[in-house]
Structure formats: C-alpha cells, structure tokens
C-alpha cells in the first residue's frame, strides 16, 4: 500500500459519502444520474464477489462493504425514497449502449476465462465508462450544482491517483495489470474536460454552467 493508493481510496470514499450526504441533507437527487449510480452499484457487486472467497485484509473487506453499502443506499434514495426529485427526463443516456459492449469485451479480453475473472474484468471496463450518463446529463441541462461538481472531482481524482499508484507498483514491485491500466486511463481521460471546468470555474467560486 503506497500513499497514492491510499489517497485514491480515500478520495473515492469521500466522493461516495459526499453524494449520499448531499442527497440526504437536501432530500433531493436532482441533477444526479440514476443510471450512473446503478452502474456503479453493478461495478461494485461484480468486482467484490471475492469478498466471500478471498480474504485480503480487514482494510480491504471493510472498504468493500462500505462502497457496496453506500452505492446501494444511493440507488435506493434515487429510485425509491426521493424518487419525486429524480430528474429522469434529463437522464436519457442509453445505459445498454455501455453495458452490452462492455460485457462482450469482458468475455473477449480477460486474464482468465472463469466466471469470477470475467465479472471482475466486466466491472473494471464498466467503471471506466459508468460516469458517462452523469456527464451527459450535465451537458444536457448545461449546469451542475457545486456540491455535485465536488463529488465528480473526487471521483475522477480517485482513478487518477490509482494511475500514479500503478506506475509506483510497476517500478517498486514489478506489478502491473494491463486491463486495469488501460481502463483506468480511459476513465481518467473522460474526466479531463470536467477537471478543466472545475479548476477554471468552480475553484474560482463560480457555478459550473455550460454556454447554451
């Protein structure tokens, strides 16, 4: 465990909890893509099936349980508890256009053709693109609440920190996983445009709004 990996995990945790708190405190999930959140729940579910088969460390197990619990709680808030505030009209990205190709790719390009390994690969590929419905929604409405942008920044930062962690591990441990690295690069690249807007607008005290 190096510092980039740890800060990456913490950034991920901050993002997830920030979103959950925002929805809970405002009693509203306006501006949040339910489709992205369902896909994140699917990502955690398919990746952490080894929670029952492969014990790594208390840290590892606890974090997995927190990520899973929070992501299911978020989905519950959007589609059940605060359903009335869900902006379904603007959440129009076709999720099947991501899930089906990603599923096909996980079958074709994986380390080992076993159910757990294919599901792990699927989760890595799906995570890399799962934020697209959320980014699409912001493009469509032309704006995002500041707290939502903090969430997105922490979520994007997490994978960027993992990329540095992978460079570190390659040099110091001779460890690398090409599937995770390529997907992690794709995932981070998708956030670049948002990072630019976040730094130039939100950090200067302005609301994130796109030109009409």
């Amino acid at each position: 465990m190096n510092v980039f990996r740890l800060t990456g995990d913490l950034s991920h945790l901050v993002a997830i909890i920030l979103l959950l708190l925002k929805i809970w405190k405002t009693r509203s999930c306006a501006g949040i893509s339910g489709k992205s959140q369902v896909m994140f729940a699917l990502v955690f579910t398919t990746r952490y099936l080894d929670l029952f088969t492969n014990f790594i460390s208390p840290y590892n197990s606890v974090m997995k349980v927190i990520y899973l619990g929070c992501s299911y709680a978020t989905v519950y808030m959007i589609y059940m508890k605060f359903k009335a505030s869900y902006d379904g009209n603007h959440d129009t990205f076709r999720a099947e256009f991501l899930i089906i190709p990603v599923g096909g790719l996980a079958f074709l390009v994986n380390h080992e053709f076993t159910p757990l390994e294919i599901l792990w690969t699927f989760s890595i590929y799906l995570e890399s693109v799962a934020i697209l419905p959320q980014l699409f929604m912001i493009t469509k409405t032309g704006e995002a609440e500041t707290i939502t942008t903090h969430y997105l920044f922490a979520l994007g930062l997490y994978r960027a920190l993992y990329l540095i962690n992978w460079i570190w591990r390659y040099y110091f441990e001779g460890f690398f996983d090409l599937i995770a690295i390529v997907a992690g690069c794709v995932q981070t690249i998708l956030y670049c445009d948002f990072f630019y807007l976040y730094i130039t607008k939100v950090l200067h005290g302005k609301k994130l709004s796109l030109p009409a």
Binding site: H12, I56, N60, M63, Y162, F175, F176
Partner: peptide, 10 residues
C-alpha cells in the same frame, strides 16, 4: 501477459 493481479486493490 500481465502479472496475474493479486486483487488487493479496490
């Protein structure tokens, strides 16, 4: 082939 990942990452 990539090193088989010991899945200690989250």
């Amino acid at each position: 082939c990539a090193t088989k990942q010991k899945k200690d990452e989250l």
